Deep mutational scan, measured.
Amino acid sequence: DNLVIALHSYEPSHDGDLGFEKGEQLRILEQSGEWWKAQSLTTGQEGFIPFNFVAKA
């Protein structure tokens, strides 16, 4: 599955970004460039995340 774990917390800075906490698990929905579309397994919310803040779970 496309699961990743957050290496750092991220505060959203643009509409459509997904904020998350360090250690949170996310499911990657789309990989494109440096911003990936993801869904939080904690909150169920979707949005874009910086790819370098996460690692394969």
Rank of each mutant, 00 (worst) to 15 (best):
E24D: 11
R27C: 08
P12A: 13
N52W: 15
Y10P: 02
G16T: 09
A6K: 01
I28S: 00
N2D: 11
L18I: 08
T43C: 04
H14Q: 12
R27V: 10
K56T: 12
L3Q: 05
E30H: 08
L18E: 01
I5Y: 11
L29A: 01
E24L: 03
E21R: 14
Q45R: 14
S40Q: 03
H8Q: 14
G16H: 15
K37D: 00
L41N: 03
S13F: 11
S9T: 11
F53S: 08
I49S: 00
A55G: 09
G19Y: 06
S32K: 13
A57L: 15
L7V: 09
F48M: 12
S13N: 11
E34I: 14
G23L: 03
A55E: 12
L18D: 01
E46T: 15
E34F: 15
Y10N: 02
G19K: 12
D1G: 11
L29P: 00
A55K: 09
F48Q: 06
H8V: 13
G33T: 05
G33A: 05
L18S: 02
E24Y: 03
L26D: 00
A57I: 15
I5S: 04
S13R: 15
A6W: 03
E21F: 12
E46D: 06
G33E: 03
E11W: 14
L41R: 02
G44D: 05
S32T: 13
D15S: 11
E30Q: 10
A57G: 10
S40H: 08
F53P: 02
F53W: 09
I5Q: 04
D17W: 14
A6S: 04
D17C: 15
L29Q: 03
S9M: 06
W36Y: 09
Q39G: 03
S9Y: 07
L41I: 11
W36D: 00
N52A: 10
A57Y: 14
T42R: 15
S40T: 04
K37V: 10
V54K: 00
Y10R: 08
F20E: 01
G16R: 09
F53Q: 04
A55V: 14
G16M: 08
D1L: 11
L3Y: 11
H8N: 08
P50Q: 05
E11R: 14
G44F: 08
E34V: 14
H14K: 14
E30L: 08
W36C: 10
I49R: 00
L26A: 00
D1K: 08
D1V: 10
L7E: 04
N2G: 09
G23P: 01
G23D: 06
A38W: 04
Q31P: 05
F20S: 00
N52Q: 12
D1C: 15
F20M: 06
